[in-house]
Simulated assay, not measured.
Amino acid sequence: MRKSERKVAEYILANPDEIIHMRIVDLATEAQVSEPTVVRFCRAVGCSGFQEFKLNLAQQLASSPSFGQIAVTETDTIAEYKRKVFDSTVDTLLKVRDRIDDRALEAAVTAMAASKRVEFFGFGASGAVAADAQHKFFRLQLATAAHSDHHIQNMSAMSMQAGDVVVAISQSGRTKALLRSMSMAKEQGALVVGLAPSGSPVAQQASIPLEVDVEEDIEIYTPLSSRIAHLVVIDVLAIGVAQRKGPQLQEHLLKLKQGLYTLREDKH
């Protein structure tokens, strides 16, 4: 954008709730620009004019209360960046909750509940999500593993059989090594569930895509909300599988919980 258009953008980001009640002349005065500059700004962000921009902004504010208020800066106090990190994560989770396909979730739960072997593949931050998933699912009377090493992923994928399930986790949806492991698993007859952004190669190659779209802030201070969203989707899958397995699994989980009591200090 031009310098004058950036002044409009900066004022709007700092005062989003006020904009929807302003006239174009009011915004031009407050941002210290001309009215045509406001119009050019609106067109630069894909709107035909100021009225359409205000309508879009009002809809965004209604669905995302923290819009424009979650970017962490180096001058923030601990109270300010605490609120921003929490608000950003909550905002992300609500968006993912409302957008994720229930039919795809149902298909993934059905496949995982019927499988005897479920493995989780991921690299980097997604590798941590895979490890957390393995910790949840091994308690559900399934043979589970989590792999974040490319070579081990490939060997594991090559040992898959029909009816086995691989859950491929990727925040970018474009990791070449993960795509190769997914392809190998499918060649062996396994079903691949993909947690990745919609339209990404991982989502397109998955047998069952669970599309998780998170707009990450590209600034240096960035709460990695996509990791949290993936963790919650894994929780949803685990609850679904546990529900499918019924009372027998509940008895098993109760035994596991009771077995952990001996590892804890008594309350005084």
Rank of each mutant, 00 (worst) to 15 (best):
T73Q: 09
Q141S: 13
H147R: 00
Q171T: 12
V232S: 06
F41Y: 15
K267G: 00
V33P: 13
F137E: 11
I239N: 10
F138W: 04
N154D: 10
V165G: 07
H151T: 09
P223W: 03
K116M: 04
V118H: 00
R99H: 11
H252E: 12
V25P: 00
F123C: 12
M112C: 06
A177F: 02
K3F: 06
T222V: 11
S200M: 05
S126G: 05
A162Y: 02
Q69D: 07
F137G: 14
P197H: 01
A238V: 09
D235T: 08
Q250F: 09
P65R: 03
A104W: 01
T73W: 00
I239W: 07
E216H: 06
E215A: 15
L231N: 11
L191N: 01
S156H: 08
S170L: 00
D91R: 03
L178F: 10
G124N: 10
H151V: 10
A79W: 00
G199F: 07
D266L: 14
K267Y: 03
Q171C: 04
E219K: 07
E215W: 01
R97V: 04
S198H: 13
N15G: 06
A145V: 09
A157P: 12
R99W: 01
I24M: 14
A130G: 02
V232E: 03
A104P: 10
A31Q: 03
C47I: 04
G194H: 03
V214W: 00
A125V: 13
K54V: 10
G127I: 10
V167K: 01
R227L: 05
E18A: 11
E18R: 00
R40K: 06
L105F: 12
T29G: 03
R83K: 09
K136L: 12
Q171S: 15
A242I: 05
K267N: 08
Q134L: 03
T144W: 04
A108K: 06
S4N: 08
A104N: 11
S148N: 13
S226C: 11
A111R: 13
D26Y: 03
K116G: 15
I228D: 14
E211A: 13
E219G: 15
L27M: 07
F120I: 07
E119H: 08
D266H: 04
Q59T: 12
F121Y: 15
E74C: 02
G173Y: 09
R23E: 15
Q153T: 04
Q59Y: 06
K82A: 12
A185I: 06
L27G: 02
K84R: 09
A185N: 09
Q243Y: 08
